[in-house]
Design a binder for these strands. Structure first.
Lengths: 234, 234
DNA sequence: CGTCTCCTTGAATTAGATCAATATGTGTGG
DNA sequence: CCACACATATTGATCTAATTCAAGGAGACG
């Protein structure tokens, strides 16, 4: 569900992909049944790493589903401070809005492939399809519940609690993976958790020192004991 | 929209109500068209100040609309830290969930009156009513957009920015009111903004010193220049 | 090999938290 | 009506978690 995770193999792959090609099967994610209702509606698009998919304020007549790679949706303050709302992985929908302009922007964390859908299309369908319209409602409610959970973390969590929650979140969709490959930078993680890069880095080091995780490389994380991490969150 | 605001006159009014009886007309709030679809379904309930309406984990077969007074919905961490998700005023819906247990708890900030609805009822109606099901979707999306906006504040805002945003939020539904009566304590405001009571109090004092607001009493706030406050948020 | 981006670590700083004391206000019971 | 108790608010003094500033290090790529 709009989770954050590692990059997966890409059609237009660059050299950097070879390194992050750990190719675990991507989970279905947020879309669940909604995905079924939407199959084969739109064209496929590719975005290179760090490319904007859309900006805040852009017309929101199209929304997207991630096929591969990772997408971040975020908001900015006037002076450039950024808050990442969510990381989206294969199967997740993003960019579906109520208003006709986007309230967040979307950027490619890694090179990625997405499918686009016309919003008018889904609205027309939903009007005659009670299953689809229920799925739409559930989609929004699921994201809402997620946002509320994240608010608790942002408002009341310590740095350790935030990072621990992040690690649980990224490791959840792949419970059997020994090592998780992160597609995002420390800066991204900081902007997701309301921390600075330095604090994220220090907290990773601390968790490694305290034997909760191991860091074979900066972007590779071995979560040694997920339950112990979970216990860090009160 | 799930806003925070002053207490209004109550059926079972206590002495304290007489003091906060500034009786501005309560705005329609979050419900908008959804309200129309739901008229006259459930019984009316009264809750005294600080009473629980439901707790996190309770069965979510009923949801509510505020008739008068203010309700807070919140989450807790194991050690008692609290994050208030929203304050709900007259016209706002709360407690409508996707799962069959509540993911937040709801408490009466002031004495309040609410109407209850059966969830099964609305689900049955929505299946045959495309207008209602669209309203439900929009209701969820509106709350989602609100939660995302709030995350930016929680994750990246300073104390002054948070308090300023809060003041704008409470004063928005009553643009003509000279003085706003707050139903909630400094603790409530702190738990909404991810701050301590002391920081909220200090920030109020600071904003008064800097002439953005005036505080005739702790719960009465005169927002002297809303646009100036807005400029505090980058 | 040099450059660039990302990451880590250390030292100094600070915004906000914590601790503590006082004030204000409201409701209670004599 | 006053005296007291209890909630809530304010303010000051300290402390600390996280930020900021600064310096290196480690990959990745041309």
């Amino acid at each position: 569900m709009t989770h954050l995770s590692h990059s997966v193999d890409l059609p237009a792959s660059t050299r950097r992909d070879i390194l992050s090609r750990h190719s675990t099967i991507a989970p279905i994610g947020d879309t669940s049944n909604l995905g079924g209702c939407l199959r084969a509606l739109g064209p496929v698009l590719n975005f290179a790493q760090n490319r904007d998919i859309y900006e805040e304020g852009d017309e929101a007549d199209i929304f997207y589903k991630v096929v591969s790679g990772v997408v971040r949706t975020c908001k900015f303050l006037g002076d450039g401070r950024r808050q990442i709302d969510a990381f989206h992985i294969a199967g997740d929908l993003f960019g579906l809005e109520m208003r006709h302009s986007h309230s967040l922007c979307a950027e490619a964390v890694s090179d990625c492939t997405v499918i686009s859908y016309r919003r008018r299309g889904i609205e027309a369908l939903a009007a005659n399809d009670e299953v689809l319209s229920r799925q739409l409602f559930l989609y929004a409610m699921r994201n809402l519940a997620r946002a509320q959970e994240h608010s608790l973390l942002l408002g009341r969590g310590s740095a350790v609690e935030k990072v621990a929650a992040f690690l649980i979140e990224v490791s959840e969709p792949m419970p059997d993976a020994k090592v998780i490959s992160l597609a995002m930078t420390r800066q991204d993680i900081g902007d997701y958790l309301g921390l600075t890069v330095e604090t994220v880095s220090r907290t990773f080091s601390q968790l490694e020192r305290e034997a909760f995780i191991e860091l074979p490389s900066a972007r590779q994380i071995w979560v040694k004991d997920r339950d112990a991490l979970r216990r860090l969150n009160a």
